[in-house]
Design a protein around this nucleic acid. Structure first.
Length: 374
DNA sequence: AAGCGTCCCAACCGCTTATGA
DNA sequence: CTCATAAGCGGTTGGGACGCT
């Protein structure tokens, strides 16, 4: 049994909006606002339209300061970078591009930008030679999306970090190659349709990421995965149902939800999250951010390594992650035990977190964040 | 000019999330 | 806490525009 329709389908006009309808809607909203109720709006405005349709028309076309026309190179780069980090979260991407709507960006990506990037892709490495990404050729049978994640995945990427000439990590560590080798990125980002289309096109699954690296390397600024002050988060926490069942994405007294509203790009996310991470709230948020552990390791207190991490600041990545795992079983509520000291005090802005959190309805974490990097 | 295929984008559909009772 | 409903979101699609033969 589906939900009740939002309007009387028989009595609403569908299809393209006429200039008269546009004028009516625009005039009404400019004069009276939306009143916070789109469902009631069409009747008040004298439109034979569904409220949803009015909302879409306003948000995507009529509202002030909507930018139409060509995307700039800078916008291209932002879209590419964000797509590579958070996948098809169009509304989040749109929030970084003033005047652009999620629908616009989605259309642009699907029809143009994706192709543009593909055409810029460097040729795939010959299969018989030693590639910069040696394990590509071992993973041709990768499942498109999603794949079960054995706990060993947490470790496998760390065992052989490679240096890629495409990447410009400020500390010289290549973030992407291990991801490619691990299978993990492709398995857990929400980019399945892209990778499927790549497969259909007969391309190597890694072409897109090669392209991303190439693209960033050949742009004016290096950006993707190499910023010194960005937190990049893949994926999100669980669904509302999962959250109430105790999974990673738990709501908080401030109304936020670690896996949803907190998802952002740049330092604002991490500061917001960490500053808010005291006591009980810290537990929830941190669970979202650091719930990466294999199921065979207790996840009690998961996440408080945020505060611990700074102590491992100068150690190499592999060592850091091992340390994080070791400290996982430490204090269950480290932050509140820490005399209300905000994590942000200990967490510097160079933290870079890559990965994905996918929970099922149980408390067992199935997919894990993979990297924690300074 | 007609027919056909492809591209593009506005709009729709239905699922998820937010919110308030 | 649950439930109902509105809003938000992202995948998909219909059909017009365009280009090629």
């Amino acid at each position: 049994m589906g939900r009740a329709p939002c309007c009387d389908k028989a009595n609403v006009k569908k299809g393209p909006w006429s200039p008269e309808e546009d004028a009516k809607l625009k005039e009404y909203i400019e004069k009276s606002g939306t009143g916070g109720n789109w469902i009631a709006l069409p009747q008040k405005a004298g439109l034979k339209r569904c409220g949803k349709s009015c909302r879409l028309r306003w948000l995507n076309y009529l509202r002030p300061n909507i930018k139409h026309g060509e995307f700039s190179d800078e916008e291209d780069k932002i879209i590419c970078t964000l797509f590579a980090t958070i996948g098809s979260r169009w509304s989040i991407i749109a929030a970084q591009l003033p005047g652009r709507t999620d629908n616009d960006i989605k259309n642009y990506w699907n029809t143009k930008l994706k192709k543009k990037l593909m055409s810029m892709a460097p040729p795939p490495p010959p299969s018989h030679s030693h590639s910069q990404f040696p394990s590509y050729h071992h993973h041709h049978q990768r499942k498109p999306f999603p794949s079960p994640s054995p706990s060993s995945l947490l470790y496998s990427p760390l065992s052989a970090p490679q240096t890629s000439p495409f990447m410009k990590s400020s500390t010289g560590f290549d973030m992407i190659s291990p991801l490619l080798q691990s299978n993990h990125l492709l398995a857990t980002t929400n980019s399945s349709s892209l990778f499927q289309s790549l497969q259909e096109a007969g391309n190597n699954n890694n072409t897109f990421l090669n392209t991303m690296q190439y693209y960033n390397n050949n742009s004016n600024n290096n950006s993707c995965c190499s910023s010194s002050s960005n937190l990049l988060v893949f994926g999100s926490g669980g669904t509302q149902q999962e959250a109430s069942a105790g999974a990673s994405c738990s709501s908080n007294s401030d109304g936020s939800c670690g896996g949803q509203q907190g998802l952002n790009y740049g330092t604002s996310f991490i500061k917001q999250e960490i500053i808010g991470s005291k006591g009980d709230q810290g537990f929830h948020h941190s669970k979202f951010m650091f719930n990466y552990l294999p199921t065979n390791i207790s996840s009690n207190g998961g996440g408080y390594e945020a505060a611990m991490a700074d102590h491992h600041h100068n150690q190499n990545l592999e060592e850091q992650v091992k340390q994080l795992i070791i400290t996982q079983s430490s204090s269950d509520d480290m932050i509140s035990n820490n005399n209300n000291k905000s994590c942000s005090d200990e967490y510097d802005n160079n933290a870079l977190l890559l990965g994905n959190v996918v929970d099922d309805s149980s408390k067992d974490v199935q997919e894990k964040l993979m990297y924690y990097y300074y």
